[in-house]
Nucleic acid binder design. Sequence first.
DNA 1: TACAATAGTTCAAGATTACTGAAGTTTAAG
DNA 2: CTTAAACTTCAGTAATCTTGAACTATTGTA
Lengths: 111, 111
Amino acid sequence: MDYVKAMARPFTHPAAPDISLDNVLHALSDPVRREIVRKLMGSDRMSCIQACAAHPPSTVSFHHKILREAGLIRSEKKGVEVINTLRRTEIDQRFPGLLDAVFRAPGTSHP
Amino acid sequence: MDYVKAMARPFTHPAAPDISLDNVLHALSDPVRREIVRKLMGSDRMSCIQACAAHPPSTVSFHHKILREAGLIRSEKKGVEVINTLRRTEIDQRFPGLLDAVFRAPGTSHP
DNA sequence: TACAATAGTTCAAGATTACTGAAGTTTAAG
DNA sequence: CTTAAACTTCAGTAATCTTGAACTATTGTA
């Protein structure tokens, strides 16, 4: 596997019907990832570094990958940065009430 | 660590305020465990073997342990078997709408 | 045009966690 | 006392997580 090809490859996102509850719940079971999603619920476009500057870049990238492959966020390259958006309506259609319940719950910080 | 002491030790359950969203979401992210919970939503007392006879006993025990330590189920020994109950009202109070949303969602089988 | 800076990604390796076969325990029944 | 049923624990392997180091791609800047 080659760096050039790997970096040139655009992000892949699951189609809405392929978003699995397994992956969504797993993605949301991590507090760092919930924090990223919570921030995206407020401001709807955000680079990775805005999302969580406190962690090392490889960790941030890893968490975004999990969220992206679970179908929770959409990522696109915009110049040097990656802009992420929450796939809110798709998630709400497929799993009604789930995001609301998770982010209403205690255990997700509200600064 | 000794078998005798370990087996004699009763099950420990987290108190309601100590039930964490991390652990609950992680517990529910596995389809086998969701299946156990779903069955407990219907009939409110169930042994481990009733819950999932298809899997090896060590696996069933493992999944029940995860659910128990997450605070989703309560287990008590009744003779030779272990009876499990869903901590439904406690979970609903702490995380309103979460169980409903998860079990309304596609991805959890409804036989 | 070259050089450096920025914002990530990928890889690798150690650390943690998950799964399950084999062996053990406890209770109940014969 | 022996056997069976229903789990649990242990141990070893498999899969995931985390993060430093190296890399890429884009965007200034000299």
